Simulated scan of single mutants.
Amino acid sequence: MNLALFDLDNTLIAGDSDFQWAQFLIEKKALDRELHEARNIEFYEQYKAGTLDIHEFLDFQLKPLARHPRAQLEAWRKEFMTQRITPIIARGTRELVERHKLDGDLCIIITATNSFVTAPIAHALGIEHLIATEPEEKDGEFTGRVSGTPSFREGKVERLEKWLDAHNLTWLSFLRSWFYSDSLNDLPLLSKVTHPVAVDPDPTLKSHAERNNWPVISLR
């Protein structure tokens, strides 16, 4: 068995689900546009530049989950999937995922975006396993805080290795491993797999990939 890891935002989808979710909540008037839109854009630019403080961002991103009942959030999420996510699934995504599944590879989406937003996306793409940043819950509702290690930068490596250990697996369980990503923030995990692949990469990752003879592909 081999291992196929997929980043989500700007990799399997041609956009950022975290950013889009906040913009969607602004449009729903669940967030104040004047207070939140500029900050959302600022955090997204920091992410792309590799300067994001993940805990500061998660404080911004997860607090809105605590302000609304779970049932309302799930209704909004269903609408969000239809309006914002389905249209931006990259054209080559399903073919890539299906190829790995047909080969019998263990397929996992590993993303910094929280699991509330990303779980239905993974389901829509037919990928059973998801490692995402986990929002804290109490009595079925969100607290607005993060639970455990965010799945970001080195945190992706930590979270993956804990997931593998929980399933009685290690890196040595796989002859080959792939990680598909667009982002410089994923260099720690890209450097761990046997087959790192840059997908529609940002300039920093593209340059790194070219220097190291990593494949550079597009799914769009």
Rank of each mutant, 00 (worst) to 15 (best):
R91E: 15
R159E: 03
P203I: 07
H167C: 05
D59V: 02
A71M: 11
K192G: 08
Q72T: 13
P196R: 01
Q83K: 15
P87L: 10
L12D: 10
K63S: 14
L106P: 15
W76M: 03
D200P: 02
P201V: 02
K206H: 13
L189A: 09
H123D: 14
D9V: 12
R84M: 11
F57V: 04
Q72F: 04
I13L: 08
H36Y: 14
D16C: 09
N114A: 09
Q83P: 00
I89R: 07
L35A: 15
S218M: 05
L189E: 09
T204E: 13
E136C: 06
R33C: 13
L189V: 11
A66C: 10
F179I: 15
E74V: 13
K48S: 13
D105H: 15
V199K: 01
E98L: 07
T86P: 00
A38W: 05
E37C: 03
V193G: 02
E141T: 13
K28V: 12
K192L: 10
E161F: 14
S218L: 10
T93G: 11
T149I: 14
A124F: 07
N10W: 03
S183V: 00
D105N: 15
Y44A: 10
K28T: 10
S218D: 14
E74K: 14
A209H: 08
G144F: 13
L96M: 10
G126F: 01
A132G: 12
C107M: 04
G148M: 04
G148K: 06
H36W: 13
K156A: 01
L130Q: 07
Q20S: 15
N185D: 10
V117I: 15
L175W: 00
A75V: 01
A66R: 05
R153C: 09
E98P: 00
D53V: 03
F174Q: 06
L190C: 06
E45L: 11
I108S: 06
